[in-house]
C-alpha cells in the first residue's frame, strides 16, 4: 500500500520561513529553540526519534533539494563522518559553542560584555548583520542570544548544504548533534 501525504511532509517549508524571518528580524531566531527542545522532549519522554523522522524541517529540505531536485552528487558519506568518535566529538564541540553563546548572552545581560550585532559563520567569520535589529525593541541580551543562536543555526544549515552537495542529501543527519544526542538518549532508555 502506497503512503499518502501527511501534514508533516510539508514541514520543510518551516526551515525556509525560519531562516527568512530571522534574516530580516533576528529576534525570530529564538523560534529555533523549538528545534532544540522538541527532539530532546521526544527522546526523553517518548524514547523515540519522532522529531528526526517526521518533524525535522532541515532534513526534509535537504532531501527535497538533494533528492527531488537532484542537487546532490549522491555519493555515500565517508565512514569517518558517521563514526562514533566523530559524531560524539562534533556533538560535544557543538554544545560547547552553544554554551559560548549562552555565556556571551550572560555577559551582555550583566553589563560585563559588549553587545555585538554580528553573525559568526563557521565559528570563525564575523559578518555584520545590522539590518536585522533595531536597538531598543528588546533588551540587548535577548538580541545577543538571537545573533549567537542564529549563527549556530545558519552555520549548521550551510554545513548540511555542503554535505548534501558533496555526498548524500541527508548526510548532515549522520552527524547532526541533535540526532546524535537523541539516538544516544533512546539507546540509553531502551
Amino acid at each position: 500500500m502506497k503512503k499518502g501525504k501527511h501534514w508533516y511532509d510539508y514541514i520543510w517549508i518551516w526551515a525556509i520561513i525560519y531562516f527568512s524571518l530571522s534574516f530580516f528580524n533576528i529576534i525570530f531566531a529564538w523560534l529555533g529553540m523549538i528545534d532544540f527542545m522538541l527532539p530532546l522532549a521526544f527522546a526523553i519522554f517518548g524514547g523515540s526519534k519522532y522529531f528526526c523522522n517526521r518533524l525535522c524541517a532541515r532534513g526534509q529540505l535537504f532531501l527535497k533539494l538533494g533528492g527531488q531536485y537532484k542537487l546532490s552528487r549522491n555519493v555515500v558519506t565517508p565512514a569517518w563522518m558517521y563514526s562514533s568518535i566523530f559524531r560524539y566529538g562534533f556533538m560535544i564541540f557543538f554544545l560547547t559553542m552553544f554554551g559560548n553563546v549562552v555565556m556571551q548572552t550572560w555577559l551582555v545581560a550583566s553589563g560585563a560584555g559588549d553587545f555585538q550585532q554580528m553573525v559568526t559563520l563557521f565559528w570563525s567569520f564575523q559578518v555584520p548583520w545590522e539590518w536585522a535589529y533595531t536597538a531598543g525593541g528588546v533588551p540587548d541580551w535577548v538580541a545577543q542570544y538571537s545573533f549567537g543562536f542564529y549563527s549556530l543555526m545558519l552555520t549548521s544549515l550551510l554545513l548540511g548544504l555542503i554535505a548534501m552537495l558533496i555526498y548524500k542529501p541527508r548526510t548532515w543527519c549522520s552527524f547532526c548533534p541533535m540526532g546524535t544526542m537523541t539516538q544516544g538518549i533512546c539507546k540509553f532508555k531502551n
Binding site: 523522522n53 517526521r54 525535522c56 532531501l63 558517521y82 541527508r170 543527519c173 549522520s174 533512546c186
Partner: peptide, 8 residues
C-alpha cells in the same frame, strides 16, 4: 544512525 531517511 536512525536519521529516518529510509522512513521518509
Amino acid at each position: 544512525v536512525a536519521c529516518g531517511t529510509c522512513f521518509a
